[in-house]
Design a protein around this nucleic acid. Structure first.
Lengths: 222, 222
DNA sequence: TAGATTGTTAATCGATTAACAATC
DNA sequence: TAGATTGTTAATCGATTAACAATC
């Protein structure tokens, strides 16, 4: 494995490669060339080879890539050969939904507990996961060896919660609050800005309509 | 407003500009220079000016940008001066959470209905939003003039639901299913691949740890 | 008018694509 | 050995940054 800094653009493509490899495996496909993979996934064959060669030579000349082998390699690169222990901060709609969503659990990301400040919610059970008092988050993270904190509190409290989680010693923060937060450099941060995503969708919807309208206009003027 | 194709990198930054402008407005700030904005938001002043000039000259030489004015311009560019009517496909945990999440509603994105295939859920009420039968989605979209379909069904049904929504005439699809779907070119598509995001977080967590370890090793070898 | 800051052109940087020698 | 396909270098493309004339 090489040592140079891998660009984020490459990292963002890895989970997608992995998803397609899972599908191929399901279908019993044993090998795939970069060209075949390109047709399937929509990246150029060249880009696929470049991306993979950031991490090592996983292919074999004249043959292609082993589907199983590549799947294992990418999983290892992403760190998906480990288990992760997570806490959810905030038991609002989103926090509760993520707590109940089994999809992550199946992939090795386990929600261990949910933390709340509201007394109405503390003590409740979410499909077997307890809602606990925000007061106790620091000791819980230490004792239960929590890796990841998921921020589902509102905008105004997001930074404070992030600070607390960082202090408590999580290695990563997954932020769903619609605001930018700052974390120490030894903590990894991934944002899911749902509103931003929706706004981007709105832009593209309007863009398509605008183009259609100008096309129609051009047609009439003919 | 210019006509050249705007790159997606620019579009993705617009909601973020807008968020910071909202904060500035709250604080009563009236004008901001690209340099001041740069310090705040973390993009270079040059990039800010480049980005904005894709859409028009919103600033004034020697002065800067009007916070209010720029907010309005960006909102209009994104199409946030309109209201959007949405349906949620799938009343699982995620679908229910989004239905109840008031944040989007406040920004002009209204969830009008939720659609399900499971008889146990059809007819139920989610904070005033009815869960309806998937059978009736096409006529509902037409009659209620739905703009956006939100896909919260599982991976295996996502493409079928997307096809149905496209046929029914939505202008945009917001996909939360952990798979890639295809839509006709007159339909805008925005994906929220939560698993991919989590995998990317895992990578960065491991990357930080690896670097820390090699640093420590280098220290010991001194 | 002088100072500040934009709008815009030019330079740089990084990411993607193309080409091809290496090799299975 | 011949054919296929990788790994990798070189070329291209696009996005970001720097520079500066225009102008408020």
């Amino acid at each position: 494995m090489k040592n140079a800094k891998i660009s984020n653009a490459v990292i963002k493509r890895l989970p997608r490669y992995r998803r397609y490899l899972i599908e191929l495996r399901k279908k019993g496909v044993e090998k795939i060339s970069s060209k075949e993979f390109s047709n399937l996934i929509g990246y150029t064959a060249s880009q696929i080879r470049q991306d993979l060669n950031n991490f090592g030579g996983f292919g074999q000349q004249g043959y292609g890539y082993s589907v199983d082998g590549l799947y294992d390699e990418i999983s290892a690169i992403l760190g998906l050969d480990k288990e992760y222990r997570m806490v959810i901060m905030g038991a609002g709609n989103l926090g509760q939904a993520i707590a109940k969503y089994t999809h992550f659990h199946k992939q090795g990301f386990k929600v261990c507990g949910v933390f709340e400040i509201s007394p109405n919610l503390i003590g409740k059970d979410l499909d077997g996961i307890e809602i606990m008092d925000y007061e106790n988050i620091v000791e819980y993270v230490e004792e239960e060896e929590i890796d990841i904190g998921i921020i589902c509190v509102n905008q105004n409290n997001a930074q404070e919660v992030a600070d607390k989680l960082s202090f408590a010693g999580v290695k990563g923060i997954w932020n769903f609050a619609p605001t930018d937060i700052e974390v120490p450099k030894h903590v990894a941060l991934e944002n899911v800005h749902l509103s931003d995503s929706l706004h981007s969708l709105a832009y593209h919807m309007n863009d398509i309509q605008k183009k259609d309208q100008s096309k129609e206009k051009a047609k009439k003027e003919e």
